[in-house]
Nucleic acid binder design. Structure first.
Lengths: 359, 359
DNA sequence: GTACAGACTGGAAACGTTTCCTGTGATGGC
DNA sequence: GCCATCACAGGAAACGTTTCCAGTCTGTAC
């Protein structure tokens, strides 16, 4: 080590001086000076090798372009960076098998922990996570019985909130545009919709599901075209619940094609409360699942785990809540957007405000 | 090393066998078998220490939530991952000083290279980059004279394209909503607008700039309110050029508040060609700056550098091109969106298609 | 039969830290 | 004045790889 030579002291003393523990005042000054002159900063690799800590955490999702995951990533980074942890972005791929590969690759020890949000799960993946050599926090469904740390949200209940809201504003013929049913969110949201529309409050009203190929605008547009081309015996649809904001925007576009006013002829709700939904015209009523909040919770959890905390696996649940905006306003407003609409307020606020509202 | 013991051979042979070089067939089989039984995978840290390679590249921007940077990140990851490189996400912070800190921190050697897109630059940052211990690729303005690898785009020319298009469809009183002028993109786009509106083709027409506090929807809304509240002597504005898509969406919302139809009364263009602009209603005419393409180019450049390529610094320029959508259609279409509109086509395509179109 | 080349294996060093352990000098108590 | 205690410094080991070097063994050519 050049710094030690320059300061004329041993490596051991150099390390202690820089780390600030058990070194005399004079020694610290001397070493600090030498380090400053040489522009030295300790090598992260050597340090990692010795300390068996990389100060890195991986965040893995199928598609980092999805606004929800971007929000999570931002939140995770905000929590971890002040603790000196770096965030490595990885892709789970779209299959369970590739996700399992990813979890197994943790064996090479390039990170101290993993935060993963898998679209699809199976027993083998669960087992791989249980046997992983570093702490893994799953964002998605609760895995309490499996003894895995997880941060979940009750998207089924969230769907119930959306349906309840639509019923409350007088909508009775509700379509549901869902994503693929073999995904964790797709399945949960379908359960939520089915439960909400089979309760007594919904008796006698019409409910119908159309499945999209993917959780994207394009898929939502296609699915909405199919759904809205049908007319139930009870009368045309007067509301559509979409399984996420991107699908909902596809539905709004389909409504536009068909000349259906939103929310006048067709009220529409999304889910995830993303930026894109907040600024859309009409702004989108959406069920917030607290993406940023979930990211923060997962980051804190992994931070606990890489410390010495050895408590049993924790399950953190973030409650969903509905954010009402223009796309489900009871009365169809004029083309202009009054400044006092909820949607307009959201738009006017700085980006930071969205986190507060997600709390 | 446990594998060596298990296979009853030396560490050296184990390494060679696993690495597949200079080992006999029998040795390879034996070691592979032992490794498989133990579920061994080589330790990334030990490997890095010895090879002086971390197989990691950092990507640093001010705000990872910005759609443009998300597109870049996705592209960078797609290029780097197949080569065995991981991507570490970092934040430059919003000041030059914090960006300099970041570049200096490369001294601890946790990555083999850095891709950075600084909002603001100064001489000290340039010097820090020149002296950085690992290859740095800058996405932003060209830094040829400074001997720094960079991937740039001519956003000034892009602004010219937007203005030319508006003039072509008969708009004569054009407002410009720009972001902060002390940022690299803000300055470049201002130059572009000024140049475009001072040429002979624009003689006698009205041009005026309003500056937003930030490159966000909220800032765009506020700036557009200010701009549109003024009426030039030549008559009310009939077009607004926004310095990026988020600002443009703010402008569209402001137009909505004032009862101005888009594009009928007010044609609006954005810049960056982001997903949000593609799916917006009306879909947004935007100048594509090839975000994904720039990300890919930067990733390839850094990949070359971490290899042994020692050629002089390279400057790669991605040409801007205008994508015309509903927000500047010559005739105001009815509320419904015909399926054959450019915007509708974009929406219907799968996400992958956007990369093709950005080429 | 000897010599040489070639294929392969094992020992050991090196990468840059941190930390345990031992040693030294000083200080203070009796 | 001597001994115990304490504060601090240096030596050395360890973390897990890869790779240089030397050595062994086999096979082949003369």
């Amino acid at each position: 080590m050049q710094v030690a030579e320059r300061a004329g002291v041993s490596l051991a003393s150099t390390s202690r001086a820089l780390h600030g523990t058990g070194a005399s005042r004079a020694m610290v000054d001397r070493v600090r000076a030498a380090a400053a002159e040489l522009g030295y900063s300790p090598d992260a690799i050597g340090r990692s090798l010795r300390m068996k800590r990389t100060f890195q955490v991986a965040f893995a999702v199928a598609d980092i372009g999805n606004p929800v995951y971007v929000e999570m990533l931002t939140a995770i980074h905000e929590v971890l960076a002040p603790h000196g942890y770096r965030v490595v972005v990885m892709s789970t791929g779209h299959t369970v098998a590739s996700t399992i590969d990813l979890v197994r690759s943790l064996g090479s020890g390039f990170v101290d922990g993993l935060i993963v949000s898998p679209l699809r799960t199976d027993d083998e993946l669960v087992k791989a996570i249980q046997q992983a050599p570093v702490p893994v926090v799953v964002i998605g469904r609760s895995l309490e019985k499996q003894g895995i740390d997880s941060v979940s949200t009750d998207s089924a209940a969230g769907l119930g909130q959306a349906v309840a809201h639509l019923v409350e504003i007088g909508r009775r013929r509700i379509g549901f545009v869902n994503g693929p049913l073999d995904t964790t969110p797709g399945a949960a949201r379908q359960r939520g919709f089915d439960a909400a529309t089979s309760g007594p409050a919904f008796a006698g009203d019409h409910a119908e599901t159309e499945q999209a190929d993917d959780f994207t605008v394009a898929a939502g547009l296609a699915a909405a075209r199919r759904l809205l081309s049908r007319t139930p015996a009870a009368g045309p649809f007067d509301a559509v619940v979409a399984a996420n904001d991107l699908l909902a925007i596809g539905v709004i576009r389909a409504a536009g094609e068909l000349g259906l006013s939103v929310p006048g002829a067709l009220a529409i709700t999304g889910m995830d409360d993303t930026e894109i939904g907040r600024v859309f015209q009409p702004s989108l009523t959406s069920v917030s699942l607290g993406s940023a909040e979930r990211g923060r919770a997962a980051a804190r959890l992994v931070l606990d785990r890489v410390g010495d905390v050895v408590e049993p696996a924790q399950q953190i649940a973030i409650g969903p809540h509905l954010v009402v905006r223009e796309s489900t306003l009871p009365a169809d407003p004029p083309a202009a957007t009054p400044a006092d609409l909820p949607g307009a307020e959201d738009v006017a606020g700085p980006p930071a405000s969205k986190e507060k509202s997600a709390r």
